[in-house]
């Protein structure tokens, strides 16, 4: 008896990307549930994490979620692959440290300044490379964190290989716990919103076909700069936050780990969806933490996972879930 799987789209009338015809409360719940429940879950999570260790894992997850989000945003909005999320992280981390140690600014201020200012510095560094594409851009981003780390090492500025210690910590643990979570949620929401506007639509088109955008009288460099600025702001915030959390910054702020794990998160979660990479971080980072005892084998583990996913399941979790949620599947007789 031959059977065939049939897929039917759920009967929600989707006129265009964000116009739904909502006819009943149940439909409304159906549409809202996928975003409301995860948000609630995330906000309640810190209240139910018992140990300090678990709290730290949660925070680390949120930090990687920011880097993954930032990576994905650059990819969606400009079509460029960054191999150097560590650049953004490191610039943010060191600027927060300097602002705090040398200018005596309190953490909440350094956080704002190094997010906005650090992003400006990082964008200025990346800006000359923006006309490059594909592997060429990837190579420059790979080079930057290495270069900054080696420069600090060679010139022994900013604490050289020892790093900088004695940086102020957050005023209290609740600020510490919620700040980064709220930032992740806010940034995800804001960027998704942005991509749905006409402005964001132009951004997405650049990654699809930049020449056609130029032929449409649009200066793509401006858009790429804005995209990189926003993405680096996320990375800088993550770095600055981390510096205050551990009251320390060192060359590890430029480490390769910070560049590759976010890519893995984005690929697992679903590239191009923004929510996907965050979801990916919440799966992958705790997993990677669980096997921390394995030392560097942990990196082997998620690198291989990344390769396997890119090769065999490039769709990503988010796209998969979205498809499953929107469709009814059933077996029918042929």
């Amino acid at each position: 008896m031959a059977k065939r799987r049939e897929r039917i789209d759920r009967p929600i009338k989707v006129l265009s990307e964000d116009i739904y015809a909502l006819e009943s409360v149940s439909r409304m719940i159906y549409v809202a549930a996928p975003s409301v429940f995860p948000i609630l879950f995330l906000l309640l999570l810190p209240l139910f994490t018992p140990s300090l260790y678990m709290q730290r894992v949660l925070i680390l997850t949120a930090v990687y979620a920011l880097l993954a989000l930032s990576w994905d945003f650059i990819a969606v909005a400009t079509g460029l692959v960054s191999l150097g999320q560590a650049l953004f992280f490191g610039v943010g981390a060191y600027s927060a440290a300097i602002l705090n140690l040398h200018f005596g600014l309190p953490p909440m201020v350094t956080l704002v300044v190094s997010t906005l200012g650090g992003a400006a510095i990082a964008t200025a560094l990346v800006a000359p490379c923006l006309p490059l594409r594909g592997i060429y851009f990837a190579m420059t981003t790979l080079v930057y964190p290495l270069l900054l780390a080696r420069a600090i090492e060679a010139t022994a500025v900013l604490g050289g290989t020892d790093g900088l210690v004695g940086i102020a910590s957050f005023p209290n643990v609740w600020v510490e716990r919620y700040l980064v979570l709220v930032f992740v949620l806010g940034a995800t929401f804001a960027l998704r919103r942005l991509l749905r506007t006409d402005f964001g639509l132009v951004m997405r088109s650049i990654s699809d076909n930049d020449q056609a955008v130029r032929a449409s009288a649009i200066n793509i460099t401006v858009y790429k700069l804005i995209a990189v600025y926003l993405a680096s702001a996320l990375g800088c915030f993550a770095g600055a936050y981390f510096t205050h959390l551990y009251m320390f910054v060192g060359l590890s702020a430029f480490s390769l780990d910070l560049s590759i794990l976010p890519i893995a998160c984005a690929v697992i979660g679903g590239m191009g969806t923004l929510v996907g990479p965050v979801l990916g971080a919440f799966i992958l980072v705790p997993l990677a933490e669980m096997v921390r005892d394995l030392g560097t084998l942990r990196i082997v583990f998620y690198s291989l996972l990344l390769v396997a996913l890119v090769l065999f399941k490039p769709e990503g979790l988010m796209n998969f879930l979205h498809r499953k949620y929107q469709q009814i599947e059933r077996w029918v007789q042929v």
């Binding site: 088109s205 699809d208 056609a212």
Partner: peptide, 13 residues
């Protein structure tokens, strides 16, 4: 722009 609906293609210009 492949991923966009046809009419949204024109939003760019």
């Amino acid at each position: 722009f492949h991923h966009l609906p046809a009419f949204k293609n024109l939003i760019v210009p």
